[in-house]
Write a protein that binds this DNA or RNA. Structure first.
Lengths: 392, 392
DNA sequence: CGTGGTGCTGCAAAGGTTTGCAATGAAGTA
DNA sequence: TACTTCATTGCAAACCTTTGCAGCACCACG
């Protein structure tokens, strides 16, 4: 069975007779338009009338029907947030930041998970299209052309993917991967593996590109492993492969995989960082709690969420879709300013990386840092897109 | 700075002239009602006409406006899912299960996070009320009376909380806590701590009650610690306190806290399970990957999500709120069957629990242990009161 | 007294869709 | 032929709200 039914009763207390603006109007003896104005333009109604209407509304438990309102104003005050996989701890900070930012602007955020499935993604955009004022597409798995096509249906902002002609929020994982490789090379590693993530991930491509270049520049050999599922399981699954490959260091697609890999290596009796160094990407909270603490490329997820919301709302405000007053100007095409913002990443060095086979012996263990130390990623909200400036 | 602006262009490609049912009607030379029926009741329209209409619709890129449809049918085919904290890995499986179940019933799920904030919870229910057909309230932090009140505004199903008169999906954490305590007592532990979670959590109260009873029955002493934040940080924060309390075993509110505690103890040089045994609750995927693997009470989160959706849809189907045809029968109150379902939990024994100070010596298990290193006899700490004696 | 302004309110259209009912025509039945 | 039945389609109301416009009363100013 698996479950026990505790109780099952049937009551017939009235199930919320929906109270409309008309009921309030009747109760307070005014026209419905006055009630409407009481809520959406209070300064236009006599204070005396206003309090009476408000009292009646309160009394009847009236709540404006947002769907009906949206039908005529063309704005729902909702934002859709489409995520590849909520189970990935990379996303919650982004979600929370987006929600908080949206709340300040009097917007609500609805999150939907696609299970890394491009088809679900597309369907979700369609479903959301008319119920939100815009959609944030995070780490999408569908094709760029499809994204462009969908963007004609509802305003879109893309996160973690570069789509020409669309506003994008990117994290500089290229720079991050480069720093990570340089860090490893500096520690004396010459044979490094890159644990790839999902094939359709833009981040994945960027990392391969940048890591490859950095390895060449540093005289190290880079082995590409993957694609893999971007999860702990995906990481621990390749532990054996990593051991056989004989590399002395690994850069993983994300922290989850890095942690999984460390666990997997441990199970095989391979010690981290003594025998193999591991670097992750994302700096999820967990990476500070595992043992050894994870060296990782910190991505500014919160800032990404905030920026994306800002960009969406900015783009949204100047083009009130579906409004009626479109006398003449609107029809001939709305100016849409599409900015692409790149957020910086930072290498955070902890305990999962150590000296490699080619380490210079004199190395003092404590603080061997190559490039600039990890400045605490300033949550500075980028003043995205200075408008129409052509020269950048 | 924190970011770099890559590009900023302005294009003026028309931003989605919204194509309506009227456009399709005009294009295909039929009345709008025929177009409507083509989508919502295809069997009522001539196959020949149908294909023509569909062709035109496809051609124009027409998509029915769900908001407008909802306005008249009274059903949005959306479900709201309100979660205390998306960052807690306990929830993703529940969310995914709910989504999958909803999809089968042709529904979409919108998730919203409340940051463990009761006020945000209430506001969210209001915001969702008219845009969804029902709301799943997971691990709510607001009061029962408020929940009851809100349930008059929109159909509600509550998860992880018992509210009389409302459909609830519960997990038998009482049974789980009992099993955990019995397991520990069986291993020879006589001094056990319970790491509490959030105060307003129903689960928390249930665990205290059941664990207290089980400890008394087993002749063990139970120390209540908390309330605490239900996170890794919350767990590691009390490590020192746990060590000082001298208990030989701990039952944590959830896996996150258990893992945090283990890390915290490790930092203090206290080994798990050799010196202290730790049990968690939830069986999140991570609990299989940390070292030592976590002994935990597995909760059926997926089943909970599915069940909740089923209950909501079932209750929903028989009461089409806001429909117009309410000639006579509907007005006088809809029968609402409110079932409360209790899902079973299971103790999963892994590596974070081991023999305690009072273990029978014949135990062939692992390393032979001397008597408990920590205050074997003198229990300086009295068992905390078991809270409200009033049977709930 | 006339004129203009102001503050408040009502009127009615509009937004995109669904749906009960009526109209049409064709086919079947007596 | 007249009547019924059926399939298909059109008509128009309804859902709940917003908003441009017009109306009204009142006041101040000239």
């Amino acid at each position: 069975m698996g479950h026990t039914c505790v109780t099952a009763t049937t009551s017939d207390e009235g199930a919320a007779v929906p109270v409309t603006i008309r009921d309030v109007a009747r109760a307070s003896g005014v026209h419905i338009s006055t009630v409407s104005r009481t809520f959406s333009a209070p300064h236009l109604v006599n204070p005396e009338t206003r309090v009476r209407v408000l009292a009646c509304a309160e009394d009847l438990g009236y709540r404006p029907n947002r769907a009906a309102r949206a039908l005529i104003t063309g704005r729902t005050h909702n934002i859709g947030l489409i995520i590849a996989d909520i189970a990935n701890p990379f996303f919650p900070p982004l979600i929370k930041a987006a929600e908080s930012q949206a709340r300040h602007r009097d917007y609500h955020v609805f999150v939907a998970d696609t299970n890394e499935d491009p088809t679900a993604e597309e369907e979700l955009v369609h479903a959301l299209a008319k119920q939100v004022d815009g959609v944030l597409l995070c780490s999408p798995r569908m094709s760029n052309s499809l994204i462009e096509q969908l963007s004609r249906e509802v305003p879109l902002v893309v996160v973690n993917r570069q789509v020409t002609g669309l506003p994008c929020v990117l994290m500089d994982v290229g720079q991050g991967a480069r720093s990570a490789i340089e860090h490893l090379v500096g520690l004396g590693h010459r044979s490094i593996a890159l644990l790839g993530g999902p094939r359709s991930s833009w981040t994945n491509r960027e990392m391969r590109r940048a890591a490859g270049a950095a390895a060449r520049a540093g005289g190290a050999e880079l082995t590409m492993l993957g694609p893999n599922a971007p999860t702990e399981v995906g990481g621990s699954a390749v532990a054996e492969q990593v051991r056989r490959s004989g590399v002395s260091a690994v850069l993983a697609y994300n922290d989850l995989m890095a942690i999984g890999l460390i666990e997997g290596l441990d199970a095989l009796g391979v010690r981290v960082p003594q025998e193999v160094s591991v670097v992750g990407v994302d700096d999820i909270t967990l990476s500070r709690l595992t043992r050894p603490k994870l060296t990782t490329v910190a991505t500014p997820t919160g800032a990404a969420g905030r920026t994306a919301v800002d960009m969406l709302l900015q783009q949204d405000i100047e083009s009130p879709r579906g409004a009626r007053g479109s006398g003449a100007g609107t029809a001939l095409g709305v100016r849409r300013t599409t900015a692409q913002v790149m957020l910086q990443t930072d290498l955070v060095i902890r305990d999962s990386t150590g000296p490699g086979p080619y380490a210079r012996p004199a190395r003092p263990l404590a603080a061997p840092r190559g490039p600039g130390p990890h400045c605490p990623a300033g949550p500075g909200i980028p003043t995205a897109a200075t408008g129409d400036a052509v020269a950048s």
